[in-house]
């Protein structure tokens, strides 16, 4: 009787102690939230890190960059590592007090990579044999050519596409380029205003093109799928994403591709005003910037030491300039 009761007490203690640590079977779960364009590189890092760290289960959950941060700040979900495609989002959205705490969600971040906007296509795309870095805007404007980009409401690559095309007007001395490639494919056409040297593209509440020549999808993976199926001919993408999935691509001049830290001031002459404020935690205006990826560990991360190890691993791999990864920041960036 005493032995059985003792066993029962032992079981009770076991329940109390083992209770729900999220660590079943001795496995430590590391929750990592990367931006969509980091998913492929982070999947590689996940496999490699787990091989080096038996007992660690890295769990990736990709979102658009703003949604990545909102998982922590607005939805109060626990995360060990946060990595986004726009460094400005971390101070804008995370340098504020956590609920019920004197600490901020974070007070620091590490910029670790850049990227550039390119035009991706396949050998089956119309005029694939003709398109170059010099004539791309003429090719995209030809009748029957279908071009895609992601929804600026949801994806940084979407509003960056609009910035690229607007910046191209100055680059090529063609003041109707934005209207002919994008603006006039909406009804009514997109409104573009200029004030004190800054051009602002005003978007409607619903990004719905009025014809078949322009295609907008929620995220880059859907554009890739359409490209591969022949549903569109060209898509504005990050260079690393086009590389990672094996698409052909043409590069764009540095003055418009958002890939040079030296041209930050030029990029900032274009803004996009979204049709509505999708999140109360961030405004609806986006300003042209050099593309910089950044990573941080939230102050309330469940496994901060392990998170730092994972972050260090990712930073070391990014520094190598691996294929399909956003290129490392150059010296001086």
């Amino acid at each position: 009787m005493i032995r059985v009761a003792g066993l029962a007490v032992l079981l009770l203690i076991t329940v109390a102690l083992s209770g729900c640590t999220g660590d079943p079977g001795g496995v430590t779960v590391l929750k990592v939230l990367p931006a969509g364009s980091l998913l492929i590189p982070f999947e590689e890092a996940e496999a490699e890190f787990e091989a080096l760290h038996p007992g660690v289960d890295v769990q990736l959950e990709g979102h658009g960059s703003i949604q990545v941060i909102r998982q922590v700040t607005d939805l109060h979900r626990a995360a060990d590592v946060v990595a986004v495609a726009d460094e400005s989002l971390i101070p804008d959205m995370m340098y504020r007090r956590m609920e019920g705490s004197e600490e901020n969600y974070t007070d620091w971040y590490i910029p670790f990579a850049t990227n550039e906007m390119v035009i991706a296509y396949t050998p089956a795309s119309r005029y694939a044999a003709e398109i170059t870095s010099e004539n791309w805007y003429e090719i995209l404007d030809r009748p029957g050519v279908r071009t895609g980009f992601s929804n600026p409401m949801l994806d940084a690559a979407g509003y960056r596409t609009l910035m690229v095309v607007q910046l191209a007007e100055s680059e090529y001395g063609n003041e109707t380029l934005f209207a002919s490639l994008i603006g006039n494919h909406f009804d009514p056409p997109l409104e573009v205003t200029t004030d004190a040297g800054v051009t602002t593209i005003h978007l409607p509440q619903i990004m719905k093109p009025s014809d078949q020549d322009l295609v907008i999808r929620d995220g880059s993976i859907y554009l890739i799928s359409l490209l591969q199926a022949g549903g569109i001919d060209y898509a504005f993408e990050y260079r690393s994403v086009a590389d990672a999935v094996g698409l052909e691509w043409i590069s764009l001049p540095e003055s418009i591709n958002l890939g040079s830290s030296d041209l930050e001031q030029e990029y900032s002459k274009v803004k996009v005003e979204l049709g509505f404020q999708r999140f109360s935690s961030i405004g609806k205006e986006r300003t042209g910037r050099h593309i910089v990826y950044a990573i941080t560990i939230p102050a309330n991360a469940p496994n901060p030491a392990l998170a730092e190890e994972f972050m260090d691993y990712v930073l070391a791999q990014a520094e190598k300039g691996r294929p399909g990864w956003p290129p490392p920041l150059g010296k001086g960036s």
Binding site: L11, L12, T14, G19, C20, G22, K31
Partner: peptide
């Protein structure tokens, strides 16, 4: 106690 162990079983708070 055994049933408690099985039923309580570490379902965890989703996403912590």
């Amino acid at each position: 106690c055994t049933a408690l162990c099985l039923l309580a079983g570490c379902t965890g708070t989703p996403a912590g």
